[in-house]
Design a protein around this nucleic acid. Structure first.
Length: 562
RNA sequence: GCGCCAGUAGCUCAGUAGGAUAGAGCGUUGGACUACGAAUCCAAAGGUCGGGGGUUCAAAUCCUCCCUGGCGCACCA
């Protein structure tokens, strides 16, 4: 067994080369430069892996990069490493490694061996992560923007779990503030209107039709009971009733989208358990709180915020920020080491104070990562659909899912950096062409499945084991596919490190494209040699696993037939 | 006014802790089914990476100034 094979697991090429380089530099008596890059070069003629290490060592060794590269090459080749075909030195001093086919072929065996677990790792080391997402106020149905946040949060949870993190997902319910009161008021007014009262709906009230529906529901269930209560009690009742109803709806919508939060955390519970008071006490003890103009302030400028922030207003009310600090303290107290918050991009100004709070609680700023979700621009055939939340005119998440399906919606949501604007064309999302990439990827998967069912029909059998036929895979496009398959591991780790699922989305389109090209160009079942045919089948099987694993990390299905 | 994000092909966007001749899809033009699924593939055309300066052997990427767009700058949530 090669030293580069650990328990039958093939290291990534980059890992393999890094290992060799580190050992070589040790022999040269120099340390491995931090900025060393080991990556696949853009162009094929520069080999499979390139590194700039010789250039970085130039000043330290007081020699030209090319001479150093030459020295490194000599030392590496002395050991005649198993998977290195040749090493070239190019340009200003790049070392270009050409890897033997057998390396990539072993990769296919690894995929076939690990199946659904291919790409899974323990990189996260069981670190406890809390991902808080959606957390929309329970004052109205979820809209597309929430859907995007849901898709990102859910996919991140899947990715981080796959990378060995201990992930909990959570929805923070803002059930204590002014908005809930307003919801109750809105419902109450509609309720009275149902009895012929001419109450005007207030300016800042919620105006959607769903409010009227809720009011009707109350009337049906309780008749005119509320009219006999005093206004405050009636509004309180409406708040509770409406909130519960809307929350149920939100849960159902998320379920429809395949999103499930492990914990539903109530803001109200925080206040009821004195958590906010405790947080105040803690901050006071640390000397981070002061009084001014009759209000209580948090000294957030001490941690890099622009100005100090009010926690308790002069009228005695708590600010939202106050309960937010208590909430984040609660998260940390529950033992979470990394907090991931997913917010709408319009809240970006809120980040410095929240990070300040985390630091005030004795953690590092980095322990809180905020992911911003930019607006979704909903289009139909290229024309923008106008939306106005205030007027209650907006397209709900549910409507979108029902129209285009959960798979297409998710894939599109995850096809951009989360903090950049996203155009979502409803007609495009239903099209079954390359313009709608989810089909392109799913089609690749279905096509492979179709090859296998065809093989079965024809009575072909995989009578030989993969390791007996894998060496027949030497076609240029096969090598390319095998390399791409191995990239999956790196991509998954990148997504986790940068908390950005969109890299995986692009990777899957890329892999599918490479597969489609291959498929159009090279006969699989019609291969001239039975062993070659089986080798190709195994390759397809490996691709199938990777696509399926990748899609499942995005929360998208991989149908066998379409 | 201050801050955050963005500006890459006609359009929509990638570009993964600076790397070699900047990528993809759509659109345009022209081609491939008596074939394992044409929901696919092949080929061509298309760029001063918003602009100027700087750092570096090397900048779309880092620094700085300016221009344009979005969003934030409450004792709102």
């Amino acid at each position: 067994m090669s030293i580069f094979l650990v328990k039958g697991v093939v290291m990534s090429v980059m890992g393999y080369i890094k290992d060799i380089l580190q050992k070589t530099l040790e022999r040269l008596g120099v340390s491995f430069p931090e900025k060393t890059k080991i990556e696949p070069p853009r162009e094929k003629r520069f080999g499979d892996v390139a590194t700039n290490v010789a250039m970085l060592l130039a000043s330290q060794l007081k020699d030209s990069p090319r001479n150093i590269a030459e020295k490194i090459r000599g030392l590496v080749l002395q050991n005649s490493p198993e998977y290195i075909e040749k090493i070239e030195i190019a340009g200003p001093g790049f070392l270009n490694f050409f890897i033997k086919h057998s390396f990539w072929q072993k990769g296919v065996l690894e995929v076939l061996n690990k199946k659904d677990d291919f790409g899974r790792s323990m990189t996260g080391g069981g670190k406890k992560v809390l991902i808080e997402y959606v957390s929309a106020n329970p004052t109205g149905p979820l809209h597309v923007g929430h859907g995007r946040g849901a898709a990102v949060g859910d996919s991140l949870a899947r990715l981080l779990r796959f990378c060995g993190y201990d992930v909990t997902t959570e929805y923070y319910i803002n059930d204590a503030g002014r908005q809930i009161k307003l919801l109750g008021k809105s419902i109450y007014i509609r309720y009275r209107q149902l009895f012929g009262y001419r109450d005007e709906i207030c300016e800042e009230c919620y105006k959607g039709d769903y409010i009227v529906e809720i009011a009707k529901g109350i009337k049906e269930k309780y008749g005119d009971e509320l009219l006999n209560k005093d206004e405050e009690a009636a509004i309180e009742f409406c708040s509770q009733y409406g909130k519960d109803l809307i929350l149920d709806e939100i849960k159902r919508d998320l379920q429809l989208f395949g999103v499930e939060h492990k914990v539903w955390f109530s803001e109200k519970s925080l206040i009821e358990t004195d958590a906010v008071k405790e947080t105040f006490a803690l901050l006071k003890q640390k000397g981070l709180i002061y009084e001014k103009d009759g209000a209580i302030w948090f000294l957030s400028t001490k941690f890099g915020d622009d100005k100090d922030r009010v926690l308790k207003k002069s009228n005695g009310d708590l600010t939202y920020f106050a309960s937010d600090i208590a909430y984040h303290k609660n998260k940390l107290d529950r033992g979470f080491e990394l907090l991931v918050d997913i917010w709408g991009a319009d809240h970006h100004g809120y980040i410095p104070r929240m990070k300040a709070a985390i630091e005030a609680l004795g953690r590092n700023k980095e322990d809180l990562q905020v992911i911003l979700i930019q607006l979704v621009n909903l289009l139909r055939e290229g024309k923008q659909i106008s939306m106005s939340t205030r007027a209650g005119e907006f397209v709900t998440l549910k409507e979108v899912i029902e129209e285009v399906g959960s798979d297409a919606a998710r894939f599109i949501f995850l096809s951009r950096k989360s903090d950049s604007h996203l155009d979502f064309d409803l007609e495009l999302a239903k099209q079954k062409t390359m313009e709608n990439p989810v089909y392109y990827v799913q089609y690749a998967h279905a096509r492979i499945c179709s090859v296998f069912s065809k093989a079965k029909q024809k009575g072909y059998e995989l009578s030989l084991k993969p390791e007996e036929v894998i060496s027949f895979l030497v076609h240029e496009q096969e090598i390319e596919l095998m390399k791409k398959i191995m990239e999956f591991k790196e991509i998954v780790l990148t997504c986790a490190r940068l908390l950005s699922p969109h890299f995986l989305t692009f990777y899957l389109m890329d892999l599918s494209g490479t597969f489609h090209q291959y498929y159009n160009n090279v006969p699989v079942l019609g291969a001239e040699d039975k062993r070659l045919m089986m080798g190709r089948c195994y390759l397809l099987l490996a691709i199938k696993y990777v696509i399926k694993n990748g899609l499942s990390l995005l929360g998208v299905s991989a149908p066998e037939r379409m």
